[in-house]
Amino acid sequence: MEGTCSGRYGFIVCITHIENVSEGIITDDGTARAKFAVEYDCVAYRPFKNEVLDAVVTQVNKFGFFAEAGPLQLFVSNSLVPDDVKYVTDENCYKSDDGQITIGVDCEVRVKIVGMRIDANDIFCIATIKEDYLGLIGYAEGDAAVGAV
């Protein structure tokens, strides 16, 4: 279970305690496997709307950029990027008009979740950096000065 995601509880990070293991029910698919219902306590990671979190940019394209906060995938659309920050095709990054901010792969960003898509076994979020105190908080390691990748 660890490392999986349930739409209801979020990502299961770590199982801390097994409460109960049920009697097994043999599955009927001819494999002679059995199912057990197991109750357990765990550390779960469930994002919420309007939550602000830090994430690492994993991919940049003209629609926006993807970032990951642990197991959670986030997408920041270019319409949720501040107006003065534009996509620069050549460098494959988002750059502000004054050149101060450059968001490229591996940068750390602080984002706010505006929407979530919760599937049975995955959670995907749309996030924004178009608000105060959001945006770039650190460059990729070893790339401190420029930030562009």
Binding site: F75, S77, S79, L80, G115, R117, I126
Partner: peptide, 18 residues
């Protein structure tokens, strides 16, 4: 998911096709 709204037009980000 709706990523942008301008008057009557919504920009939608499709999670299945990205």
């Amino acid at each position: 998911m709706v990523v942008k709204v301008s008057d009557q037009i919504a920009t939608v980000f499709s999670t299945s096709t990205n």
